[in-house]
């Protein structure tokens, strides 16, 4: 590991940014309003962009700046704005219907973070400290994203949950020093996924149901009778 000693400025900054991502993921768990959730997602992406740029700087890996730029422009600006517009046009900026209570969700979230810290720190004693903690934080973000997807029944918030999960993966990939090719490709894929989600599903669901509440689809779950 070159340059980044535990306790140095570089290490602390990276640590702070990754920890910030986990914190914002937590805040997503208890949001009741779609607009607030979208704003938080923008903040999440902004933190990711800063974190990736910092990694690019400390690892002297200029290609990571591309990833950071994509995160900044696409994830922190374009997607939240587009989703804002969709929510506005569909008139669904009311309260989010959550499947599970906030208290229980937060407790489960804490459990997941503890789990990922214990798991990742235990299995990577040999790796360098920054990569270890990045991985632990990244797994937390992934699991919290999953939790958002599970506890929301609204299609837009499920998409937000998925995109925050994707952010966790990018964090992990950039933390793994020198990982080739995959950073760019995974970012390209998150773009593709976002396009598909927004373009195809929301508009198709809109066309058919005049609602994007996936709960409305639950009536059709299971067998055709």
């Amino acid at each position: 590991m070159s340059g980044l000693e535990m306790g140095s400025l570089g290490f602390d900054t990276a640590h702070l940014l990754a920890g910030g991502l986990v914190l914002v993921s937590f805040m997503m768990l208890y949001q009741h309003r779609l607009y607030a959730l979208l704003n938080l997602y923008a903040l999440h992406a902004l933190l990711l962009a800063t974190s990736v740029a910092w990694q690019a700087f400390t690892q002297a890996a200029p290609h990571l700046y591309v990833t950071a730029l994509i995160a900044l422009i696409f994830k922190a600006l374009i997607i939240p704005v587009a989703l804002h517009r969709i929510v506005e046009r569909l008139g669904i900026h009311r309260d989010i219907e959550t499947a599970v209570g906030v208290g229980a969700t937060m407790l489960v979230g804490m459990g997941l973070v503890a789990l990922s810290l214990v798991l990742m720190l235990r299995v990577t004693p040999g790796a360098d400290p920054l990569a270890r903690e990045d991985l632990a934080f990244a797994l937390s973000v992934v699991l919290l994203g999953l939790l958002v997807m599970v506890t929301r029944r609204n299609a837009v918030s499920q998409v937000v949950g998925f995109m925050s999960l994707e952010n966790g993966l990018v964090l992990a990939a950039t933390g793994a020093k020198g990982m080739p090719l995959v950073v760019e490709i995974s970012v390209a894929f998150s773009v593709l996924i976002a396009f598909i989600v927004i373009g195809v599903f929301l508009f198709r669901i809109r066309e058919r149901f005049d609602t994007v509440d996936v709960g409305a689809l639950d009536d059709f779950r299971g067998e055709r009778r």
């Binding site: 992934v142 999953l146 997807m149 999960l165 994707e166 993966l169 793994a176 059709f220």
Partner: peptide
């Protein structure tokens, strides 16, 4: 639509876990 949505969500979760595993192999 519901089938495609379910497939997309569960498939994405699967593919996310697989990418995390891939990163760990690299590590």
């Amino acid at each position: 639509l519901e089938a495609a949505w379910k497939y997309f969500i569960l498939g994405s979760v699967g593919i996310a876990l697989a990418l995390f595993g891939t990163i760990l192999v690299y590590m």
